[in-house]
Design a protein around this nucleic acid. Sequence first.
DNA 1: CTGGTGCATGATAGT
DNA 2: CTATCATGCACCAGG
Length: 862
Amino acid sequence: MGTRICMNALCGTGATREWKKGWPLRSGGYADLCFNCGSAYENLVFCETYHLEEPGWRECYLCRKRLHCGCIASKSMLELLDYGGVGCSACAMTSRLHSIQRDEIRNGFCALKINDADDLRSTSVENRVVGDDADEGKLTQLCRVMEANEPNFLHQSLRCDTSASLGQDKQEEVRRSHGEVGSGFSGAIQPYVGSPKFNKPDSGRSMLDVRDTHESAQPSLNMTLGVPSGGSNFVVPFSNGSTDGKEQSKASPPFQQGQRSRPILPKPPKYGLNMSSETNKGATSQLRIARPPADGRGKNHLLPRYWPRITDQELQQLSGDLNSTIVPLFEKILSASDAGRIGRLVLPKACAEAYFPSISQSEGIPLRVQDVKGKEWVFQFRFWPNNNSRMYVLEGVTPCIQSMQLRAGDTITFSRLDPGGKLIMGFRKATNSDETQDAQTSPLPNGTPSGESSLSANGDTSWSKSANGGRTNEVSPQQYTPVTEKKRTRNIGSKSKRLLMNSEEAMELRLTWEEAQDLLRPPPSVKPSIVTIEDHEFEEYDEPPVFGKRTIFMARLPGGQEQWAQCDDCSKWRKLPSDVLLPPKWTCLDNVWDSIRCSCSAPEEMSPKELENILRVSKDFKKRKIVDSHKQAPECESSGLDALASAAVLGDNAGDIGETSVGATTKHPRHRPGCSCIVCIQPPSGKGKHKSTCVCNVCLTVKRRFKTLMLRKKRRLSEREAAIAESAQFQKDDNDNHHKGESETNGSTNNEVMNMNHSENETSQKRSQAEVVESSNGQIDLNCHPNREDMQIEDPGLSIMSLVDAANMPLENYMQPNGGVGLGSLSSCLLEQANGQSERLMSDEGFLASVGWGQNQEPNID
DNA sequence: CTGGTGCATGATAGT
DNA sequence: CTATCATGCACCAGG
């Protein structure tokens, strides 16, 4: 422990402060431990950036600890420094920032007047929506400072609150809870200060012994739940019943966090300070705020992840009857097992014990719960003994889950209807809420943010939107859990990154984190450096990336690739060079590459049918990638039986994979597709261990399922044939009507597009297949959904239909080389490839190859 | 054989 | 280090 002069400009003018060497940094050297909160950071930006909380007092953005400037400063003596931080004109001039004893802090704080008219907390964006010019300037300045210093954490708002639940004095808490809550700049800015570093394991507090300060210090509560919203029937479930200090301190952080979840908005002058009260009201009612839960039984405070995040609008919808009151209790993001057919919803223990009836018997009790539609469900609320503890579950939830069409990743909420205490169950779909980026879909390689759902239904923004040139309005605590941040910080580093990706790669993306990465655009005029982390190349840059417009890629001409984007105004699709990155908002006017089609009035280049085809093919590319990703790497190519197993499984599910990226894997809870850990790279148990001759239950099941799969395929095929016939007729008319006058190039292109999905033109089809069925190595991939179009890309002579015929035969025929007619060709082909080992029919690539190339014995791929 | 049930296990967050 | 919780899995009952 020693002292040094802080050279951080944000700190003010070279404050003398205590410091201590922290853990080693990747970049060399050591992290500094914040003398204030004890946490270690790679820089001390946060802890050295204070804002004014009370005259003469400064509060650390991050740890909320208050410091007195060391003199009895008046408002006029305290000012925001040009480059951030707060300077006391008295202290700063003497370059001295006293770190006072914590008991001094407490005592000093307690001595402060509660309602100081000169309170500098006028920078609030809450109660005082429109601040005076000076305050506005300060706020702007501070925001700028925050942006400048932690640009890549700007969207990680609420997560940090979990860690930042550092206490406050009871006096302040009580005071603020009685109406002064809305003031204070601290909470407004708080959502920005989340730093992954804050969650580093060593908080350093032991060394600095500031923990008790935290527990007794006070958070800044900046808003009153529901106050501006007009949600009159919403009860602020504030835990105020306890007088026990410890309990109080436990109860307060949730509340504090709930308050802090109200973020400062990205552009304070625009959205924050200049926002009218009315506007603010409207916005507030739709803000998805993590509301601290109602006071329940028991002493366990709920983890923030379970706080109900419900908008006032939803509350009103839920309550319906204005005479009743909805008390949000808790919510939970459905896990795979919750949403699975097993019908058991694991309840957070604290929630179950706090809000559900107490049960002593493991069998539990029936629990009546009403859903948002008014339908009443009865679940069995019970527990299992688990490690001297209990594991609470709701059983029999499957019908309810299904009726609400919930899946893993969606959120289920529990509220109480007062009077009466009836339990109300609501839900939020992950695809429509900002849940998308939650902990189960961590934003970097360990996770899979879905690109589909960046916007919530009510207009709340998730971080994906926030990245769009701004920052999030609100991010759920789940979205950036400490674990995610820890991993990111440790493995990836703190700089903003975008997975290095060119358009060809983007073309092959599936709807995963990779695709989301594709949407990220490097910050303008930034030259990224390339780093490789765990076999992924990342562009690294200091500024946060922005979100770009989604486009599709299409290779309609040999060797050439096109990019197509849709105008945000007229929704027409425009062709672009393949290498351009579009901003998130793009219109025809921005189409500088095509002078003819640079306005919305210009006609679309393609007919609707062509567009449909292109979009469909593009979609298929992605599906294809999804399916491919479920196969083993080429060097460990799965056996034919494995492929069959995959086919059997994916036959049911492949089509949904892209839409269930939120869902959990079957590996283990916190590993997602793309995870390369030792657990996830292992094949499922049993895979690869079975011979083709194996007649174990698993193998027989697989074979049976394969047969079922083929039967289903046949059924669908017949349905599709009718559709294709109709489509072909339509296209014929379409071509006749629309494309006679088009250029030769376009004409041929059109044909190619058409041939993507129709096999009349074999030549084009082959070329298309070469693009579509990339890296097939002469095999047809069974690991795809029967519904998929590219399953139809087949040899006209046989393939699927024969396969279907074969599937109709008794299973035994599959196992015999001289089976039926339909399979004969398959078998013979197989036999050739299997060197006479007929049992390979079901067990290796030969089978798949034969299925794919059928009687022609010749791959379609050039 | 299938699906349900209850417990065990292991990852991870929190202390 | 401990508590929590997601999920795996053995066991069992019923079809």
